[in-house]
Amino acid sequence: MGTTMTQHPESKDSQAEKKPGIIRVEGMHKWYGDFHVLKDLNLAVDQGERIVICGPSGSGKSTFIRCINRLEEHQQGRIIVDDVELTDDVRHIDSVRREVGMVFQHFNLFPHLTVLENCCLSPIWVRKVPRREAEAAAMEYLERVKIPDQATKYPGQLSGGQQQRVAIARALCMKPKIMLFDEPTSALDPEMIKEVLDVMVELAGSGMTMICVTHEMGFAKTVADRVIFMDGGEIVEEAPPSEFFSNPREARTQKFLQQIL
């Protein structure tokens, strides 16, 4: 189904090349005050790869992906996204953020704007797309997440699942090369989790580079190329899902999997 998806030309080209190492994290450390939250993380993600990060709460997985678009600062090591290194330079940060979409646990839609305006805001003001074009594109993405009929409503009028799908559409409207998901289904009522996961599975099928922090192991099994297990601020284990779930190497991974499966 992925090949029929609406894809902007650049990503088609680059997809053909399958650019290796679109995200490179090298020896990255982070502290909150004296507390060492992230310890010597190393990760290379190729274009089109789908990574799932899991681990117990407080293991630093959210902090990790928030470092990738600099919502959090790292203090040591390097993070290079699409050939741009994240430093204090605001221009670098902005250019990385333009290429990296993010979906939050609590949706974080803008409550004073309609669904359509939420989706068009950044394309119009950052990408300088003409309004009409931006709206047409936004409607396409809203159709893709199956809520074009809600376009004129405000976020406050939608259910949690609908809001999260709008949030995904809003991120996609920027035509990002990479999508980060920070526990996208954790704040949802159980009956709404599936509608959001369906959208994410479909997105994974379209060849999007994705890093997803989630507790949905079913999702990890179906779509992930690699599963990363974090604990205590470290990457404990990294393996393809088949291996990760059936034959985990580390004791901590085994314990974690026993608890959640």
Binding site: D94, R97, N108, F110, V126, M174
Partner: peptide, 21 residues
């Protein structure tokens, strides 16, 4: 804080983040 973060993650710079969101 999520509003600031969402605006930032969409690539809006400081003045647009403040002015629009």
């Amino acid at each position: 804080r999520g509003q600031y973060e969402a605006a930032g993650a969409l690539g809006l710079g400081y003045w647009r983040k403040m002015g629009l969101v």
